[in-house]
Design a protein around this nucleic acid. Structure first.
Lengths: 147, 147
DNA sequence: GCTAATGCCTACAGCAACTATAGCTACAAG
DNA sequence: CTTGTAGCTATAGTTGCTGTAGGCATTAGC
């Protein structure tokens, strides 16, 4: 049995993150020591590693919740897990395309800036006048979780 | 002079977003009609268009705040604006690399999943055991604004 | 055995950048 | 003159944590 700090170190997450995962029900309530401190065993460590890796792959917590409950039913067909992963891939692909376009436009902007005064600054100018930019990124303005 | 709704439509943002920008000081307080409704002129529309385009390029609001104050001083050298844009480009480039790696791993995972039962599901398995994945994405776990 | 330094506890506030809700007033069209 | 849309304020919610305050628990060194 390990304390929350050791578990955090082992899994590579921060202590409050573990408590947060418990709070939102991703991790079940831990056992407690006589002094009311959380104690974790192998199971919890595995589960946390799963969560951490899924987060690294960019899965949102809700998707991870689903993946975890799927992994608790090993006899079920894995279509659902597959679908979640495919949705995530689609999301990543969309973001990649978008970011690629942003990169091109930022590069173009910066390249054209000759380093004079603000009045002639291509950066400011392009941002101020959308007509000066070719890229059509007028969609998906909502902020999303990245990575 | 236009109402907030027309400005929102013209700029392609939502009405509450404009009020939010005013609240955080990105847009100054608008003139008001006799009935206390906000009224906007050409200036505000330009400024909002600038903000919107900068957001589309992924600049965080703090950077936009700086860019706006720079654009108010056209005689200054444009190094600062340039630096902000370069920082943004660097950020986008980093995110692109990361997302690219994620995409590869997700594809690998999905491809190997044969569609059987959860117990054999490659998706669940790879997420559960980091050793099964080659990609080293064990950094930058913090969520960031995307796009 | 004692004390100091960690480590853990709870509860709450804050981050970005909005978005949504509730309950009200203003204004334009018929 | 009514009705419907648009606007107003204030507040809470979103995602995934992170940071703070104030107070116990545990452990390492003496």
């Amino acid at each position: 049995m390990m304390t929350i700090g050791r578990l955090a170190t082992a899994a590579g997450v921060k202590v409050p993150t573990i408590r947060y995962y418990e709070q939102i029900g991703l991790l079940g309530a831990a056992e407690r020591s006589a002094g009311n401190q959380r104690l974790y065993g192998r199971d919890a460590a595995d589960r946390l590693a799963f969560i951490r890796h899924a987060r690294e792959l960019g899965f949102p917590l809700e998707a991870i919740r689903d993946l975890l409950s799927l992994s608790d039913r090993p006899d079920q067909p894995c279509d659902a897990a597959d679908a979640i992963a495919r949705a995530q891939l689609a999301d990543v692909t969309r973001r990649l395309a978008r970011l690629g376009a942003l990169k091109v436009e930022l590069e173009r902007m910066i390249e054209q800036c000759s380093g004079g005064r603000i009045a002639d600054c291509r950066v400011i100018e392009v941002i101020g006048d959308h007509a000066l930019c070719e890229t059509d990124h007028r969609k998906a303005s909502g902020a999303r979780a990245i990575v």
